[in-house]
Design a protein around this nucleic acid. Structure first.
Length: 428
DNA sequence: ATCACGGTTTGCA
DNA sequence: CTAACGTGCAAACCGTGAT
């Protein structure tokens, strides 16, 4: 049976969230910046029209921004993830199967529903999200995830579709006509490099790629590309993932707002990152067997002396204990730290991750010790959940963190923080 | 010749 | 006045030592 898979994607999600709580931003060029106010990660339609590109470094377009009165926001993840939760929760009510793919998009399975009515049903979903959250979304429907993504792309670019594009309600000829207008680099899983490679073999449009189907059996293309081609031909290769699979690696890294030379400050940042990663580790019920620490000077600044170093520390036994992990992290940092450099970035990586239930204690390990550690972490997480994040922290995170990322223009956390809401209201 | 392993690079979103 | 460019993850790739 042909599947009916929908991809729901919020339009310019971060910008739309900002506009929601500050209506003055509507119909204006607005952009949202990445962490540390580094690069552009979201643009309103008006900002796109001015030629501002995704991923561009902010400082490079500063003059342009001033000239056109482009409104610039730092990213406010507390706000975006809360709005995302609301959207996802509403969407979950429309389907028996939902995969949350990213902060602003999810797949819904509609296989089995009546085909003719699915477009109308999607319109209803659109209206419901609009009414209950105020956020605009687009919905693409196709018989595979890859096609759903493409249908969504078409709905986004062509206002005549009124936010919904349903490939499954379209004649094959018409579908192909649309695919022929889309460059391969817009296909899910095809990036800059693969698109270039395809181009060299004279494959330019998504229809070209789709038509490789019959010729692909013994071709040199990778398994991954073949799956994409199958999916374009209505054969499902990527199923919806019901539950998030546990991560095999957990990374936490940040750039600093100012260059760090001091060991103590580097140690603070590393401690913070380890705490964060360990929290994630515990959320997915895993232990890590190894921790990786790395530090580096700026990759872009050619004038300053360059130094990067890293160390991998195998842990004597797998753990999720923040205190144990931070201790090993500090030891590692001491080994790779070199005095006299201006550090721009630090990060940590947890690997050799195993499910907690697969843990095998060493021959001489005391069972109680493990139990105590588990309980301590449980209480730590419970307190931080109940009393607010960061009520309990490891002391070596430091009190003030002068290196913390730059966010010069962050909006209030309207939906998750009373204090922010009160402050916001005073200015209205 | 082949495999497992682990570090490094590449690619994508 | 100057300098300023994000993050997370998996898969592919590649060298090494063991069998």
């Amino acid at each position: 049976m042909n599947r009916s898979i929908a991809l729901v994607d919020c339009n310019n999600f971060y910008v739309s969230c900002e506009q929601l709580f500050n209506p003055q931003l509507k119909n204006k060029p607005v952009i949202v910046l990445s962490n540390n106010d580094g690069c552009i990660v979201a643009r309103s339609e008006e900002a796109k029209a001015l030629g501002i590109k995704m991923g561009e470094p902010w400082f490079q377009i500063k003059t342009l921004a001033r000239k056109y009165n482009i409104i610039t926001c730092s990213s406010n993840y507390a706000l975006y993830s809360d709005m995302s939760d609301r959207v996802m929760s509403i969407l979950s009510q429309f389907s028996h199967s939902q995969e949350i793919y990213s902060i602003d998009e999810c797949f819904l399975d509609f296989t089995g529903s009546c085909r003719n009515s699915l477009t109308t049903y999607a319109q209803k979903i659109y209206k419901c999200i609009q009414q209950q959250t105020g956020l605009p979304v687009c919905i693409g429907i196709g018989s595979s995830k890859t096609l759903a993504k493409l249908a969504n792309h078409i709905a986004k670019k062509n206002p005549s579709f009124q936010n919904v594009c349903n490939f499954n309600a379209m004649k094959l000829q018409e579908q192909n006509k649309w695919l022929n207008r889309i460059n391969t680099k817009n296909v899910w899983g095809v990036g800059k490099q693969l698109a270039l490679k395809l181009q060299k073999t004279n494959i330019h449009t998504t229809l070209d790629l789709k038509n490789l189907y019959l010729r692909t059996i013994n071709s040199q293309s990778s398994v991954y590309l073949r799956r994409i081609i199958y999916e374009l031909n209505n054969i499902v290769c990527f199923e919806l993932k019901k539950a998030a699979e546990p991560k095999k690696k957990i990374i936490c890294s940040r750039s600093f707002s100012k260059r760090i030379t001091d060991f103590k400050e580097l140690e603070q940042s590393i401690t913070l990152y380890v705490s964060h990663a360990a929290e994630k580790l515990r959320q997915q019920n895993s232990y890590a067997g190894s921790i990786h620490i790395y530090i580096s000077t700026s990759l872009f600044n050619k004038k300053e002396p360059c130094y990067t170093n890293n160390i991998i520390i195998p842990l004597p036994e797998q753990t999720d204990n923040t205190l144990v992990l931070t201790q090993f992290a500090s030891l590692g940092l001491r080994k790779i730290y070199c005095n006299g450099y201006k550090y721009q970035k630090a990060g940590i990586l947890l690997s050799k991750i195993i499910p907690r239930k697969e843990y095998q204690p060493g021959l001489f390990n005391k069972k109680e010790k493990r139990k105590n550690s588990d309980n301590l972490m449980k209480i730590l997480d419970q307190i931080n959940t109940k009393m607010g994040k960061k009520i309990l922290v490891v002391a070596s995170e430091g009190i003030t963190q002068p290196w913390k990322m730059k966010q010069n223009n962050k909006s209030p956390r309207y939906t998750t923080n009373w204090h922010d809401l009160i402050v916001a209201n005073k200015f209205v």
